[in-house]
Amino acid sequence: MIGDQTKPEDFKNERGGDHSHIKGWGIDRDPKNDPTYPMKHRTDEEIEGYTWERPEQQPVNIEVLHSVERPNIPAVFGTAQPPEGLSGAIRRFAFKYSESSYGRWLPLVMADRIGEIEGIVDDLKKGHIPNLFAEHGLKSEWKYNRKKFVLKSAVTAAALAGVLLFLTRDKKD
């Protein structure tokens, strides 16, 4: 690796250099590639506004939160995990705000964290005890990064032991 001690004169930019050893060099070069192309193939569509022939509407059989920046629900949408519980109530609140507002995004982050707790409760209700070792993929940590695994385990065990000792101390002392 080259470090910070490199001198500028060690390098030269190579315009017109020989790149014949690189397969495909220059085959897609395009001198007309200006800052609006290729992201946009210009048409008059936008000038006409929200007037395109819309695809058929997917039936709305679940609660779909939609941005206040659009007038409707798009023709198709995902049906994964409709809002429910406390996290769902927070999401409904968040969707009252626009995408340019912290009022939209910060409550959603909070709802995600509450959703995690709701997920654990839901698992327990179904008789499923989450296997945190497996869910964190720690088998691979043991396999490929054993030193760090042992160190982290030791620190965690020490911290837990400390908390346990603190909680079970004789309060008369």
Binding site: L65, H66, S67, E69, R70, P74, A75, F77, E99
Partner: peptide, 8 residues
């Protein structure tokens, strides 16, 4: 614009 309700 016809695939995502949640964000424009």
């Amino acid at each position: 614009h016809e695939a995502n309700p949640q964000s424009t």
